[in-house]
Simulated scan of single mutants.
Amino acid sequence: MTLNIARELANQPAQRLPIYDANSLTDGGSLANIQLGEQVYTLRITRAGKLILTK
Rank of each mutant, 00 (worst) to 15 (best):
N4Q: 13
T54Y: 06
L43D: 01
L3K: 13
D21E: 08
A48K: 14
A32R: 00
R44N: 07
N11E: 13
T46S: 06
Y20K: 09
R44P: 00
Q35L: 10
L17H: 04
I34G: 03
T42I: 08
A6K: 11
L17A: 11
P13T: 00
T54N: 13
T46C: 04
N4M: 10
P13Q: 07
K50H: 06
P18Q: 02
R47H: 10
P18I: 00
Q35Y: 03
L3I: 14
K50C: 05
Q12R: 13
D21T: 08
A10Y: 03
T26W: 01
N11K: 11
D21R: 06
K55H: 05
L51W: 01
T26N: 02
Q15R: 12
I45T: 00
A32Q: 05
I52R: 12
L25T: 01
S24W: 07
E8R: 15
I19K: 14
A14E: 09
N23W: 08
I52A: 10
G29A: 05
I19C: 12
K55C: 04
I52E: 09
L17Q: 07
A10T: 05
I34M: 05
L43N: 01
I19V: 15
L3N: 13
N4E: 11
N4D: 14
L25I: 03
Q15Y: 07
R47M: 07
A10D: 11
Q15V: 15
R47G: 14
L43V: 01
Q39L: 10
A32E: 02
I52Y: 03
E38W: 06
S30I: 11
A10I: 08
D27T: 08
R16V: 13
G37Q: 03
Q12L: 14
G37E: 04
P13L: 06
Q12S: 11
L36Q: 13
Q35A: 15
Y41S: 09
A14I: 06
A32H: 03
G37K: 01
K50Q: 03
A32L: 02
N11I: 03
D21Y: 00
A22T: 11
D27R: 12
A48G: 09
G29L: 06
Q15S: 12
A32P: 02
Q12M: 13
Y20F: 13
N11Q: 11
L36A: 14
L51K: 03
N4W: 05
T54I: 07
I52K: 09
T42L: 03
A48M: 07
G28K: 11
A6M: 08
P13I: 02
L43Q: 01
R44D: 07
Y20L: 14
